[in-house]
Simulated assay, not measured.
Amino acid sequence: MDTITHTLFGLSLYGAVDKRDMNKNHKRAYLLTAVGASQIPDIDVISRLWDTEGLYQMWHRGITHSVFLTPIWALLFFLLSLLLFKVKDKKLFLLGWLAVFIHNTSDLFNAWGTGYLEPFSNMRITFGTIPIVDLVFWIIIGTAFIFSKRNKLHSPYYYKMAWAFMLLHVIVQSTQGFLLYKQYDGQYDQVALSAGFVPWTYSVITKKEDEVIIFNDNLFQEKEKQYVLQSNETADLDKLFSQRPEAKTLYEWSPFVVLVDDNERLGIYDPRFYRNGQSFLFEYIEKNSKR
């Protein structure tokens, strides 16, 4: 999920806590833990500062997003609350653990995926059933905020209901994505999903031999063929990998890629992010470059 959504998740966790008997320091500790722990796995973005080998793609949403690291992050915020606010409350540890778990698990449902099982597995787990920016979450949380302002006494109840509706949204959206995936699985060598920004819509990316087809599909309409892409499967990528180590990382990170080898460029791109004739994730070298 994007930074705004993770922040809203943290604020929603804080809103769901009954704070009527808390003093100012307790409230501050709970706010820091709920929001901070909801953001902390994305601290891996600073790895750009020392990445000289093109490994950022694997580092981002890598070990920091591991489910096995969640209690470590929770302990960090428990200790910060004790250090900064002199608050020692075991519920802070549980809140921090839940916040990090929600961050890491929600990222599984995006096309980007996470290293959820690192360090025991480098596999990128991705379901592709929820877009990185999902406005449905924003609407649900915004509605809870409005109701909580009208009736502050029942504020935690509204946020708990918001979490129930968000969970229902994930279940409904992912169930539809799974059913769509099963319709394509077996017909193609490889299949991947990428949820659209409109609820219940998906891009289904298929690959069979050297042909990649991207469909726009959902359970309530006929599928629409959006793009047909040709992958040059005989391309020799050694030179590309030696000059652009990011390309090798992308090759290992993506479920499958499209290989480009023409008169101008040698490269690879992830077709899940293909829009308007270009993929967001495209690594290549110019064949006519003077360098």
Rank of each mutant, 00 (worst) to 15 (best):
219 L>A: 12
28 R>S: 13
56 Y>H: 10
57 Q>F: 10
226 Q>K: 14
161 M>P: 03
185 D>L: 11
136 V>G: 03
78 F>H: 03
36 G>P: 06
178 F>Q: 09
102 I>Y: 02
62 G>Q: 10
29 A>D: 05
38 S>V: 00
206 T>V: 06
233 E>N: 15
154 H>R: 15
174 S>K: 01
4 I>W: 08
196 G>L: 11
274 Y>F: 13
7 T>D: 03
110 N>K: 05
218 N>Q: 12
22 M>N: 05
17 V>P: 01
113 G>P: 06
132 I>Y: 05
266 L>N: 04
205 I>F: 05
128 G>Y: 07
223 K>F: 09
247 A>H: 00
190 Q>D: 13
180 L>Q: 07
101 F>P: 05
275 R>V: 11
69 L>S: 05
93 F>A: 01
255 P>I: 01
162 A>V: 06
159 Y>P: 04
288 N>T: 09
54 G>E: 06
132 I>W: 00
47 S>R: 00
264 E>R: 11
246 E>T: 14
145 F>T: 11
108 L>A: 02
273 F>G: 01
267 G>L: 05
96 G>F: 00
118 E>C: 06
272 R>P: 00
140 I>A: 03
106 S>D: 06
45 V>I: 11
144 A>K: 05
216 N>H: 15
226 Q>N: 13
163 W>R: 02
240 L>D: 02
271 P>I: 04
126 T>C: 09
129 T>Y: 03
77 F>E: 02
22 M>W: 12
271 P>Q: 11
88 K>H: 09
146 I>N: 12
42 D>Q: 10
277 G>T: 04
121 S>Y: 10
43 I>L: 14
131 P>K: 00
45 V>M: 11
156 P>I: 12
120 F>R: 06
243 Q>T: 08
114 T>E: 02
268 I>R: 00
1 M>Y: 03
277 G>K: 08
168 L>A: 15
148 S>E: 15
230 Q>M: 13
148 S>D: 12
6 H>R: 07
275 R>Q: 11
213 I>T: 14
215 F>N: 07
193 L>M: 14
102 I>E: 02
243 Q>R: 14
156 P>G: 11
47 S>D: 09
169 H>R: 01
109 F>Y: 12
146 I>Y: 15
197 F>M: 14
195 A>S: 08
152 K>V: 14
75 L>K: 07
206 T>W: 04
114 T>R: 03
263 N>G: 12
253 W>T: 04
119 P>G: 10
190 Q>E: 14
169 H>P: 00
3 T>P: 05
63 I>C: 07
72 I>S: 02
290 K>Y: 08
258 V>D: 00
120 F>H: 10
212 V>W: 03
238 D>S: 15
154 H>P: 06
245 P>V: 09
114 T>Y: 04
224 E>Q: 15
41 P>F: 01
265 R>S: 06
